[in-house]
Amino acid sequence: MKIALVAWGYIPKPPLSHSVLTVINEYKNFLEKIGHQADIINEKDVNEVIEYINNNNYDFVHLHAYSFVSEFNRNLKQKYCFTCHDGYLFKTDKWNEEFREAYQHYFNAPGIIALSHLTKDFLLKAGYSGYISVQVNGIDTQKVSFQDKGNNKAICLGWIQPRKQQKLLAKIIDGKIGIDFVGPLDDPDFVEGTTTKHLGVWSLEQVYSRLTDYSCLVLISEGEVAPLVVLEAMAAGLCIVVSESASANLHHKEFIKILPDNILTDTTPEAKQIVTDTISEMIEKNQYYRQEILEYVRENFDFSRIIYNYNDIMHDFINLHS
C-alpha cells in the first residue's frame, strides 16, 4: 500500500526534536519493513498538501496536524484518518483559540485514530460518530541504550513550560532529591536549585544514549495525551512517576507511580511529602526492576509489535470506504 503520513510543516532546528515527528518517522520505518510505501508530508501550506495527496493516489492518509482538519474535510478527495496529539485535549478550559476553532471540525473527519481508549471515549462522548480506533504511541526500543544500573537520580525531560509544571516540581524537591531537567527553557519562572539542575537541550540521539544513566523519569504534567518520553524512559530501564494526565496506556506496575494532576499545585505539606517520597521510592526500587521495565515496554509499545495493529486499522478503514 501507498501511505501518506501528514505533519504540519514544523522542522525543529538541531538539537531540538519533536515527539510527534519522531513517532511519524518510526511509522514510516516500520511500515516499510512490512512492505508498504510510506511518505512523510511535512509542509505548512495545507492547500499544497491537499493538492499533492489528491494527485498522488494514496491508499491511506493519516493526518497528524490538527489545524488541517477543516480543509481536509472540505477538499481532500479521499477519506482519511486523523490523530490529535494536543496535550490539553481533555482540559476544555485550557484550550487556546486555534485549538477551539479546529476541534469543531474533528466530528466531520471520516476516521480518527485515537492514542488511547481515554481519547476514544472522550470523542465518542462528545458526539463523534465516524470510524474510530485506538493505536498507542510506540517506540523502537532497539535504538535506546540500556544499562543494568542507574545513577540514583531522577530526570525530567521535555519542554520546560507551565503545562508541564517543572518549576513547581523543582521548588518542592530542591535539596531533597537530585533531579536533572533537560529541554528547551520556555518558562521564565523556572529556577534551578541546589539539587535541581537544568542541563540544556539534548538531541534525540543524546536522549537515547543518556537516559539509561538515570533511575527515574518524572513527568507531573497537567496536560498530556500519550507522552512518548515515558516510553523512551522505560526503554532505557527507568521507573516512572507521572501525573494522571501523563499515564495513558500504562498498566498497574510496581515500577510506575501515578499521582493526581493537582499534586504540585496542592500547597499542603502532605502533598509535597507525597511527591518527594514517591520519587525517592521509585529511585530506590529501580535497581530491582530495570530488566522487567524493558521487557514491559517491548511487549506493549515496541513498534515491531504495534505496527500490525496499525496495519489492521488501515485495512479496516479502507474496506469500510471501498
Rank of each mutant, 00 (worst) to 15 (best):
V201S: 11
W202S: 08
W202K: 10
W202R: 07
L204S: 15
L204A: 15
L204C: 13
E205S: 15
Q206P: 05
Q206K: 14
Q206S: 13
V207Q: 06
V207C: 12
Y208E: 09
Y208F: 13
S209K: 13
S209Q: 12
R210D: 12
R210M: 14
L211Y: 07
L211R: 07
L211M: 09
L211D: 06
L211K: 05
T212K: 04
T212M: 01
T212E: 07
T212N: 07
T212V: 02
D213S: 15
D213Y: 15
D213F: 13
D213H: 11
S215A: 09
S215I: 10
C216K: 03
C216F: 03
C216Q: 00
L217N: 04
L217C: 07
L217A: 06
L217R: 05
V218W: 09
L219W: 11
I220G: 07
G223E: 01
G223S: 02
E224A: 10
E224I: 10
E224K: 08
V225W: 04
A226I: 03
A226G: 09
A226D: 09
P227M: 00
L228R: 11
L228N: 12
V229D: 00
V230G: 00
L231Q: 11
L231E: 07
L231R: 15
E232N: 01
E232L: 02
E232G: 01
E232M: 04
A233R: 03
A233T: 01
A233M: 01
A233K: 01
M234R: 05
M234A: 05
A235Q: 13
A235C: 14
A235N: 13
A236F: 03
A236T: 05
G237E: 07
G237T: 10
L238R: 04
C239Y: 06
I240H: 08
I240T: 08
V242S: 06
V242N: 04
S243F: 10
S243W: 09
S243A: 12
E244C: 11
E244V: 14
E244R: 15
S245K: 10
S245Y: 07
S245W: 03
S245E: 07
S245G: 13
A246R: 08
A246E: 08
S247N: 09
A248K: 08
A248G: 06
N249C: 02
N249W: 00
N249E: 00
H251R: 12
H251Y: 14
H251S: 14
H252F: 14
H252E: 14
